[in-house]
């Protein structure tokens, strides 16, 4: 579902957009706002994928609003004046609709929204398959999956041991485990997630990765045994 909000100060245009949105099952209309200030509060507190945004509003204009949004979702500008088009496209928007908006033109806009979403998802999926970004020392560091040996829980932090260094970041094992999409990673203990491609050997209740002996809980041992090619 595409979480959508409408920002429009003119009641007929607002109702018209609401009606048009309801024709598309993929749009989840989560809010309608008559000014930019209220919309900004909502965008800060909720996840929004698409904003249908009027440009010319009293107070904060649509263009002012997009300036204030840190991670801009998809934006479809709606306006009575095409003279704003050039300025609007400076913001890498998805579409620009002139009011009143016909259902056919709205349909094209939603097609563009879906295309953009598919492209973004493909890029995101490609990233998820190959890497993780962890925040440490105020910046995001890329860890390619093949370089990661294992993760170790240290209090409220996680230690990532890689072939090129050790990094510490704030997270929980449960949350980290849910974010790793690479099937070669396995939780073997409440404090360890290992990359199976780095296993040197294992016996009883331990695995060795490089020179580190990592405990394997009884609960996870059967999962480990089921995940490796035992001869």
């Amino acid at each position: 579902m595409i979480k959508t909000i409408i920002v429009e100060d003119e009641i007929m245009a607002l109702k018209s957009l609401e009606k048009l949105c309801k024709k598309y099952s993929e749009l989840d209309l989560i809010g309608m706002y008559e000014n930019g200030e209220d919309a900004l509060e909502s965008i800060k507190s909720a996840e929004v994928d698409l904003i249908l945004l009027d440009i010319d509003m009293p107070g904060m204009s649509g263009l002012d609003l997009v300036e204030k949004i840190p991670n801009l979702p998809q934006v479809v500008f709606t306006t009575g004046n095409t003279e704003y088009a050039y300025e609007a496209y400076e913001y890498d928007i998805t579409d620009f609709l002139k009011k009143p908006i016909s259902p056919d033109r709205f349909k094209k806009a939603i097609e563009k929204v879906n295309e953009t979403l598919e492209k973004r998802n493909a890029v995101s999926l490609a990233s998820e398959m190959h890497e993780l970004y962890i925040k440490t020392d105020g910046k995001y560091i890329r860890l390619g999956y093949p370089d990661i040996l294992y993760f170790e829980n240290v209090g409220d932090y996680i230690k990532a041991i890689t072939s090129h260094g050790t990094y510490i970041f704030h997270d929980t094992m449960k949350s980290l485990d849910s974010k790793i999409t690479n099937p070669r990673f396995l939780k073997v203990h409440r404090s360890y997630i290992i990359n199976m491609q780095w296993i040197k050997d294992f016996k009883d209740n331990t695995v060795v990765i490089k020179d580190k002996v990592i405990p394997v809980s009884r609960a996870y041992k059967s999962v480990l045994l089921g995940s490796i090619n035992l001869i």
């Binding site: 100060d9 003119e10 007929m12 245009a13 018209s16 010319d56 009575g80 004046n81 009011k99 009143p100």
Partner: peptide, 9 residues
Amino acid sequence: HKIKPVFTM
């Protein structure tokens, strides 16, 4: 500006 598109509707 505000009432402009309303008439077409």
